[in-house]
């Protein structure tokens, strides 16, 4: 398997390729794209519920003229217990030109890529990576800042289980940002410091926000409470909810981001989510541009 023909994660993604993808997205933003993927068929294989990511890939593919086929969890062969590889072999035989995989198991897109001869895009795998999310986040920051180099980015929430956190800390630290990870000790293992010299850890929200240029808030799943990672929603809100009062510790023009789905009043207060600093809706819009860039690069340029 040659990783250059896939997008499996930010790890292993060469910096020139990152820059190329960001540049492509920029071009698509300015000029309406030609139907450069006309005649291509993209398989969206979603083993995990997803509204925004699947729709975003679908819109991106269609804007480039490609046809999409969606197979989602609950579809028959998956329900009947067919193995991932058998499902992939079957669907591959229906002449698809690329496969977008979302799966609850870390490494599932990697497994698929090892066994098919078409490009595979990771649309989120378990607790591992979500590379298109990180790319769209970087793209969003770059629409408001000349460079990522030297920025301080705070990522707040359930870091341990978050593929968004992993992909973003890999990408943003690579592009020169300093990344502060923040969450309760149970959801922020010290091993995260090993990712990069530009990553630091804190369990204190105020410390994480102090002077930050970008504040990225992650969803907290209440399932984690049942697993005793933290005692209660109230205690989480008291310690880690990003409110307008707390946000004053960050730079006055700090960007507020959230990959969604967002629960107002829990990890983020409604006024922060709707504040002029918030670029949360813009992230969604940029997601389509980035996914167009990824599909164009993998399906259009290498064909």
């Amino acid at each position: 398997m040659d990783t250059a023909h896939h997008l499996l994660g930010i790890e292993g993604l060469a910096t020139p390729r990152i820059e190329h993808l960001l540049e492509l997205a920029r071009q698509f933003q300015i000029a309406p794209p030609p139907r450069s993927l006309a005649g291509k068929r993209l398989l969206l294989l979603f083993y995990e519920a997803s509204t925004r990511t699947r729709t975003s890939f679908e819109v991106a593919a269609r804007r480039l003229g490609a046809e999409t086929v969606s197979v989602t969890a609950g579809a028959s062969s998956i329900e009947k217990g067919e193995s991932l590889l058998d499902t992939v072999y079957t669907l591959r035989a229906m002449a698809v030109d690329g496969i977008v995989v979302r799966h609850s198991s870390s490494g599932a897109p990697h497994l698929v890529a090892c066994h098919v001869d078409v490009p595979v895009v990771n649309a989120g795998d378990g607790m591992h990576e979500h590379p298109t999310q990180a790319l769209l986040d970087a793209f969003t920051i770059l629409r408001h800042r000349p460079s990522i180099e030297g920025l301080t980015v705070a990522i707040i929430g359930d870091i341990l289980h978050s593929r968004v956190a992993r992909s973003n800390l890999l990408l943003l630290s690579r592009l020169g940002a300093h990344v502060r990870l923040c969450g309760p000790r149970t959801l922020l293992p010290p091993e995260f410091a090993a990712f990069s010299d530009r990553v630091s850890l804190t369990y204190d929200l105020e410390e994480a926000l102090a002077g930050a240029d970008v504040v990225m808030v992650l969803r907290i799943q209440m399932e984690r409470m049942r697993e005793s990672f933290f005692p209660s929603e109230a205690e989480y809100v008291a310690r880690y909810s990003v409110t307008s009062e707390r946000l004053r510790a960050a730079r006055p023009d700090a960007l507020v981001m959230h990959p969604g789905p967002m629960i107002r009043g829990v990890e983020i207060s409604a006024d922060v989510a709707d504040s002029p600093q918030s670029v949360i809706r813009e992230q969604v819009e940029n997601g389509v541009l980035i996914r167009m860039a990824v599909l164009r690069e993998l399906l259009g340029e290498t064909a």
Binding site: G107, M127, E129, R166, F195
Partner: peptide
């Protein structure tokens, strides 16, 4: 459980 598991996103 160690840095490699964190990196691969495996429990």
């Amino acid at each position: 459980a160690g840095p490699r598991a964190i990196q691969l996103g495996l429990r």
